[in-house]
Design a binder for these strands. Structure first.
Length: 262
DNA sequence: ATGGTGGAGCGTCCA
């Protein structure tokens, strides 16, 4: 058996329902985890997903900003909605898969522009979010997958220019250290890098502000799929669907697709 | 040099 889980920061699920349908048609994941849905739950386009064979929707949205959702071919068990931001923002939804594995869909805050919590509270919130995730992770006792937009590119090979981005939020040493503490708190396996180890470059995001994203290729690996030690042996492949950055009216993130043998 | 783009929804905020 093969179980396919996709993760995608969609930057408005309503504005981009067309390319969501394209992903479902072409990649046929069993489960799709979305971030930045940008709509409250009552406005989530359930009918579009049902028509594509995904009638099971577990949204955690809010008006205008942020928002996550899990959609699925088969029924899942709602499990939790953590507020790791501690301010009510919709940035997490968790379910239990049919095989019992927990799936946690996370949208880590971007953190603003200035990497200093004394002048930019959003940067502190980002680090504190990861701190709360770490305390959750330390107490976790069940096989789990945690994935989504982590808004941090941890490795030098996860950005187009390591030195140029050391002071840029998403690649600063304190963010990388904080993410490493989260990863080591439960022995999380970084599946993206399990299948595409350094020194290969690997990106999941390209800014809208480039004249030609493909030509300049100034990408960052902000999206991640991690699994707990019990699940690692079931992982078969992880794909970053780079071509989706060139689809019509694209998201600035591309889908991550993980295949498991369960 | 402090840009550049995009979505939500009508001010700017968020990314």
């Amino acid at each position: 058996m093969s179980f396919r889980i996709a993760s995608w920061n969609i930057n408005s699920v309503r504005a981009r329902i067309g390319i969501v349908e394209r992903l479902l048609r072409e990649q046929a994941p069993d489960v799709l985890c979305l971030q930045e849905t940008k709509c409250e739950d009552a406005l989530f386009p359930h009918a579009s997903f049902a028509a594509m064979g995904y009638p099971h929707v577990y949204p955690a949205g809010q008006r205008m900003h942020h928002g996550v959702a899990i959609v699925s071919k088969v029924a899942l068990t709602p499990n939790n909605r953590f507020d790791w931001q501690d301010n009510g923002e919709a940035r997490h939804v968790g379910v239990r898969l049919p095989n019992g594995v927990l799936l946690e869909n996370v949208y880590v805050p971007a953190g603003g522009d200035i990497p200093d919590r004394t002048v930019n509270p959003k940067f502190g919130q980002k680090l504190d979010f990861l701190g709360r995730m770490t305390r959750w992770s330390e107490g976790l006792r069940e096989p789990s997958i945690v994935l989504g937009d982590f808004n941090i590119a941890p490795l030098p090979e996860d950005v187009w220019d390591h030195k140029a981005l050391l002071d840029v939020v998403s690649h600063t040493p304190v963010e990388v250290e904080t993410l490493a503490a989260l990863q080591s708190s439960h022995g999380w396996a970084d599946l993206g890098r399990l299948f595409v180890p350094p020194p290969a470059r690997l990106y999941t995001w390209w800014s809208y502000r480039a004249a030609d994203w493909a030509a300049s290729n100034r990408g960052r690996r902000l999206d991640h799929v991690w699994c707990s030690p019990e699940v690692r042996g079931s992982a078969r492949a992880v794909t970053t669907l780079v071509a989706a950055r060139g689809w019509e009216k694209p998201s600035d993130h591309v889908p991550l697709i993980a295949d498991f043998d369960f």
